[in-house]
Simulated assay, not measured.
Amino acid sequence: MAEVKIGNYLTLEDFCNCTNTYKKYSQQIESYPKNLEVTIPALEALARFILDPIIERFSHEKFKLTYGFCSPSLRKYLDKKDINTGVKNGRIDPQRDQHMAGEVKINGRYYCDRLGAACDFQIVDTNSDRVVEWILRSQLPFDSMYYYGEDRPIHISYGPQHKRDIWTFGEKGQPTKKGLENWLELVKRYSPQTREI
């Protein structure tokens, strides 16, 4: 597929080919979207409203996309276990996490009815909690943000709901708001509706 620019700094290839699972099985995975009329605008909105401002603040050189768009083909490989280690290649919750953007199943229904798009990223040499705090203070209109730890990537999505939900995860991978009290207060204080600065 010819290079398609997504936002000011990223390409469709960046979104489709960044995961370790894709790199491991690239010969077997068709990583690009099929429902271009819905998926490309969703990725462009994610870049425009969320990722471009983050890159402009922390620099393109330090921005590292670790998980972008998930095609149905990539999804199958994420669900499989590595034959050498027996460990599952990755995690995906297509009904909620928005990584599949506007892709549709054989029956014509969206994988994720929430639409929008999501990615996971890190800022090299910067703790993720510092990045989360900047996102909240900057009032970026995210839909969901998942915090996995100060040295782990951040999951962020942009979609029509603009929920500004922020989650962390317990030891068994269950979503929780435990330990996020200060950030949840920032979400309220710096939401576009309150206009507090």
Score class of each variant (00 low, 15 high):
residue 71 S to K: 01
residue 141 P to E: 13
residue 118 A to D: 03
residue 124 V to T: 10
residue 76 K to P: 01
residue 113 D to Y: 04
residue 51 L to I: 15
residue 76 K to I: 09
residue 124 V to I: 07
residue 65 L to D: 02
residue 77 Y to H: 12
residue 105 K to W: 04
residue 96 R to W: 14
residue 74 L to E: 12
residue 134 W to A: 03
residue 56 E to K: 12
residue 75 R to V: 00
residue 80 K to A: 12
residue 77 Y to R: 02
residue 111 Y to T: 04
residue 115 L to H: 06
residue 121 F to K: 01
residue 122 Q to K: 13
residue 56 E to I: 03
residue 78 L to T: 14
residue 133 E to P: 04
residue 139 Q to H: 08
residue 120 D to A: 02
residue 141 P to R: 05
residue 137 R to S: 08
residue 92 I to E: 11
residue 97 D to L: 00
residue 78 L to D: 10
residue 103 E to I: 04
residue 108 G to W: 04
residue 127 N to Y: 11
residue 118 A to R: 01
residue 109 R to F: 05
residue 102 G to C: 13
residue 55 I to K: 10
residue 73 S to P: 11
residue 73 S to F: 07
residue 52 D to T: 03
residue 132 V to F: 09
residue 52 D to V: 09
residue 140 L to T: 06
residue 57 R to I: 01
residue 78 L to P: 11
residue 124 V to N: 05
residue 131 V to Y: 02
residue 63 F to Y: 14
residue 106 I to D: 14
residue 120 D to N: 14
residue 125 D to W: 04
residue 137 R to G: 05
residue 139 Q to F: 01
residue 69 F to Q: 08
residue 65 L to P: 00
residue 104 V to D: 05
residue 87 V to M: 14
residue 138 S to N: 14
residue 100 M to C: 15
residue 120 D to C: 12
residue 108 G to P: 06
residue 122 Q to R: 10
residue 97 D to N: 14
residue 141 P to A: 09
residue 137 R to W: 00
residue 94 P to K: 09
residue 116 G to M: 05
residue 111 Y to C: 08
residue 126 T to R: 09
residue 118 A to E: 05
residue 87 V to A: 11
residue 57 R to Y: 13
residue 131 V to W: 06
residue 62 K to D: 12
residue 139 Q to V: 01
residue 123 I to C: 07
residue 87 V to W: 13
residue 125 D to I: 00
residue 92 I to P: 00
residue 112 C to F: 08
residue 86 G to S: 06
residue 62 K to T: 07
residue 72 P to R: 02
residue 128 S to L: 05
residue 107 N to R: 05
residue 92 I to R: 10
residue 80 K to Q: 15
residue 61 E to Y: 05
residue 81 K to D: 11
residue 115 L to W: 03
residue 137 R to H: 11
residue 118 A to I: 03
residue 89 N to R: 06
residue 103 E to A: 13
residue 81 K to H: 11
residue 85 T to V: 03
residue 59 S to C: 08
residue 110 Y to F: 14
residue 79 D to Q: 05
residue 105 K to P: 00
residue 66 T to W: 04
residue 58 F to R: 01
residue 52 D to I: 03
residue 52 D to P: 01
residue 140 L to A: 06
residue 108 G to F: 05
residue 53 P to M: 03
residue 91 R to D: 13
residue 134 W to F: 13
residue 133 E to I: 09
residue 75 R to I: 01
residue 105 K to C: 04
residue 104 V to W: 00
residue 60 H to G: 06
residue 79 D to P: 00
residue 110 Y to S: 09
residue 86 G to W: 15
residue 80 K to N: 04
residue 53 P to S: 08
residue 85 T to I: 11
residue 99 H to F: 15
residue 57 R to E: 15
residue 81 K to G: 00
residue 73 S to I: 02
residue 62 K to H: 12
residue 129 D to K: 06
residue 97 D to M: 07
residue 128 S to R: 07
residue 103 E to T: 07
residue 122 Q to S: 15
residue 124 V to M: 05
residue 76 K to S: 12
